[in-house]
Amino acid sequence: MEQNDIFAMVRGNLSTVIPELDADEITMDATLTDLGCNSIDRAEVVTMTMSDMGIHVPVMEFQEAGDIRSLVRLLARHTA
């Protein structure tokens, strides 16, 4: 799966979790925390995206993912 496709999924799920978010703010360089996510919001965005992709990544692995770019790369690694 292309990283662009995964990014689009993350962006869509972020908008579901935080509807008032301006879509232009959601960039590869932003962190979920910067965008206003608390820990529960972050976990939900990840869960929704994994479900969309049909994959399962252990929760511990996401602790390294700071910005959206590293989150997308981590998810992409598990789709090979």
Binding site: A43, E44, T47, M50, S51
Partner: peptide
């Protein structure tokens, strides 16, 4: 349908 779809929330 998909156990992983259960959110921590």
């Amino acid at each position: 349908g998909d156990p992983v779809a259960v959110p921590g929330r």
